[in-house]
Amino acid sequence: MVVHAHVDSSDVRVGGPRFGLVVSKAVGDSVTRHRVSRRLRHIAAELLAELDPDLLIVVRANPASAAASHDDLVRDMRSGLSSAVPRAREERS
């Protein structure tokens, strides 16, 4: 998976952090894409408390996400966040 982060600098925040998911047809058929989306949403919900509220996160699933275990997806998302969030903070400075 690929993780992108952006620091929301707007004055009005509805709450956060916010996640967006991109699961393209390359991942699989409709049933597979929805299963991957549900799994990623579940993982994102687990990670919400660990992230700052001013973050906007986009997660793009790769085709390998369809066959990945839960632990692999969690590890990949944490890894992606650990590199994307500091980069977004640097760009904001």
Results as ranks from 00 to 15, higher is better:
residue 1 M to T: 02
residue 1 M to K: 03
residue 2 V to C: 09
residue 3 V to H: 05
residue 5 A to F: 11
residue 5 A to P: 10
residue 6 H to P: 06
residue 6 H to D: 15
residue 7 V to H: 11
residue 8 D to W: 12
residue 9 S to D: 13
residue 10 S to W: 04
residue 10 S to L: 04
residue 10 S to Q: 10
residue 11 D to M: 04
residue 12 V to E: 14
residue 12 V to S: 13
residue 13 R to E: 14
residue 14 V to T: 06
residue 14 V to E: 15
residue 16 G to H: 03
residue 20 G to D: 12
residue 21 L to H: 04
residue 22 V to G: 03
residue 23 V to D: 00
residue 23 V to R: 00
residue 24 S to I: 00
residue 26 A to D: 07
residue 26 A to R: 08
residue 26 A to Q: 10
residue 27 V to Q: 00
residue 27 V to P: 12
residue 27 V to I: 07
residue 27 V to G: 01
residue 28 G to P: 09
residue 29 D to Y: 00
residue 29 D to L: 02
residue 30 S to L: 02
residue 31 V to A: 00
residue 31 V to E: 07
residue 32 T to W: 09
residue 34 H to V: 04
residue 35 R to T: 01
residue 35 R to W: 08
residue 38 R to Q: 04
residue 38 R to L: 04
residue 40 L to S: 07
residue 40 L to D: 03
residue 41 R to A: 03
residue 41 R to Y: 07
residue 42 H to N: 09
residue 42 H to W: 03
residue 43 I to C: 08
residue 43 I to Q: 08
residue 43 I to W: 11
residue 46 E to L: 00
residue 46 E to T: 00
residue 46 E to Y: 01
residue 47 L to T: 00
residue 48 L to P: 01
residue 52 D to C: 15
residue 52 D to V: 05
residue 53 P to T: 07
residue 56 L to R: 09
residue 56 L to Q: 03
residue 58 V to T: 06
residue 59 V to A: 00
residue 59 V to Q: 01
residue 60 R to H: 09
residue 60 R to Q: 11
residue 61 A to V: 01
residue 61 A to I: 02
residue 62 N to S: 15
residue 62 N to Y: 14
residue 63 P to D: 00
residue 63 P to R: 00
residue 64 A to R: 14
residue 67 A to M: 10
residue 67 A to T: 04
residue 67 A to N: 11
residue 67 A to Y: 09
residue 67 A to P: 02
residue 69 S to D: 13
residue 70 H to S: 11
residue 70 H to P: 12
residue 71 D to R: 14
residue 72 D to W: 06
residue 72 D to N: 01
residue 73 L to D: 05
residue 75 R to F: 09
residue 75 R to Y: 06
residue 75 R to H: 13
residue 76 D to N: 13
residue 76 D to V: 01
residue 77 M to S: 08
residue 78 R to I: 13
residue 79 S to K: 13
residue 79 S to C: 06
residue 79 S to G: 15
residue 80 G to C: 14
residue 82 S to I: 09
residue 84 A to W: 13
residue 84 A to P: 11
residue 85 V to L: 10
residue 88 A to D: 15
residue 89 R to H: 11
residue 90 E to Y: 10
residue 91 E to F: 04
residue 91 E to S: 09
residue 91 E to G: 08
residue 92 R to P: 09
